[in-house]
């Protein structure tokens, strides 16, 4: 239930940011809008992710540095007169992560140097990755592993089991959330 309140909270914050001012009318209408949105489009999994602020900051920093490097690399590949691209498609394996974190990984891989996520495979968890500059499967797997370790530290597993595997279960099968799709 608290997870739901949290969702209402940040949806309201987005609403207030859009209107550009914290006034009672904005906050009230934001609360109403958030409630309507959550009723009309219920979210399947409301299991909140725990965030480790320190590793979260490291993850954001690593990601931004990767984005700058990726942009510079692609910019050079675009403007250099004779292009020597060797595009290939590789597969990199992922550790067991809850769905939200797998999506985060897929997004982050797309914005870091040389790689673009093509497909997310469920079983076993893996990413199909398009590589622009002929990087080897080993180097791409190393990058993905580094990112996965950062993601796991930034979002430590919650729950009694202490393992992300528990959160891997399909949200539809969880008793407290069954039938909410």
């Amino acid at each position: 239930m608290s997870a739901r309140l949290l969702t209402v909270g940040w949806l309201t914050a987005v609403w207030v940011a859009l209107w550009g001012g914290i006034t009672p009318a904005n906050v009230l209408s934001g609360l109403v809008a958030a409630g309507l949105v959550l009723t009309a489009f219920p979210i399947a999994s409301r299991r909140p992710l725990r965030i480790n602020p320190l590793w979260g900051a490291v993850l954001v920093g690593w990601f931004l540095a990767g984005l700058v490097r990726a942009s510079a690399t692609v910019a050079w590949q675009v403007i250099r007169p004779r292009s020597r691209l060797r595009p290939t498609v590789l597969t990199a394996t992922l550790p067991a992560l809850p769905p939200a974190l797998r999506v985060l990984m897929a997004d982050a891989v797309s914005l870091t140097p040389g790689t673009l996520t093509l497909d997310l495979i469920e079983d076993p968890p893996a990413l199909h990755i398009h590589v622009l500059d002929g990087a080897t499967a080993d180097s791409v797997q190393r990058d993905v592993d580094t990112l996965a370790r950062l993601v796991q530290r930034a979002f430590p597993p919650s729950g009694a089991s202490g393992d992300h595997r528990a959160a891997m279960a399909d949200p539809r099968t969880r008793p407290d959330e069954g039938g909410r799709r």
Partner: peptide, 26 residues
């Protein structure tokens, strides 16, 4: 650069590289 890349790179997947990274940072 992203726009030039979308025009200049050889295939759809390579073009998506240009359409994501430099465009987002830009």
């Amino acid at each position: 650069v992203a726009a030039i890349g979308v025009h200049r790179l050889p295939d759809v997947l390579s073009r998506m590289h240009a359409a994501t990274k430099p465009a987002t940072l830009g």
